[in-house]
Design a protein around this nucleic acid. Structure first.
Lengths: 125, 125
DNA sequence: TTGATATTCAACCCAGAGGTTGAATGATGC
DNA sequence: GCATCATTCAACCTCTGGGTTGAATATCAA
């Protein structure tokens, strides 16, 4: 499927989060601003690779870049994760609503059975 | 980056969620079990394509398949999303902890300034 | 200026995602 | 048995993701 012409925010956020390197970067940034080179240092990959990861995070608005001379200072921007949280909450609300409905149904069934006159030779179950 | 030899659960869950078709599938399934063909019907793509999406969701343990004769009944399994929620919560906890620390620092600074001997021409605030 | 440092840009590689079509498998119903 | 229905398997295509290396750009420092 050619990804929809307009990949929405959830797509980009979730895609950005679906990589351990990028999650590590966010973790690091949640402790405060870091320069690109400093950020890349602990990773077992080229600076360029990290630079690309950063761009993905920026595209998802999870990271903000502040230029100061030749240094680029990166910081974490949590807002997009709220959208993810909201989607997941809605999803799980649906799910539990359905389970609750099922449960209610079963209880109603039991109630009806219990109030039925007991047959001579036992229940039909 | 050759994805790490062992893609962890978060990777697979987030990757599975990072596609609108798959999110739509989950949404549909959260209302209850559905057959593959029935599930695929509203999508503007082949049955095979949907079948592949289902496999991605199964790999992430977001969907469970129950065979009944020739029909495969799919259902939503929310557990992996809990892990995502936990990771995001931890992430945001870090973030706010750091903001709080920053805030404390600023307040401490203010306190120190406030307790300094008042300059001749009044408080700095 | 010149040289070092911080960062990106550009070109390339390869594996995998998402899609297609056509054939295979397996249950159902006559 | 035979046709049909539900589903996957297999092969293929194209695009993108994540990585590399090497060159370009911009700032700092001398």
């Amino acid at each position: 499927m050619r990804m929809p012409a307009t990949p929405n925010h959830l797509d980009q956020t979730l895609l950005a989060l679906a990589d351990p390197t990028r999650r590590a970067i966010l973790q690091r940034l949640s402790a405060g601003e870091v320069r690109v080179t400093e950020l890349a240092q602990p990773f077992a990959m080229s600076l360029n690779a990290v630079s690309k990861h950063i761009r993905v995070l920026e595209r998802a608005h999870l990271v903000h870049r502040r230029r100061e001379g030749r240094e680029h200072l990166l910081s974490f921007t949590p807002k997009p994760m709220d959208d993810v949280a909201r989607w997941m909450d809605a999803q799980r609300a649906n799910w539990s609503a359905r389970l609750q409905a099922l449960d209610d149904l079963l209880q109603e069934e039991d109630r009806v059975l219990a109030s039925a006159p007991p047959p001579k030779k036992g229940r039909t179950r």
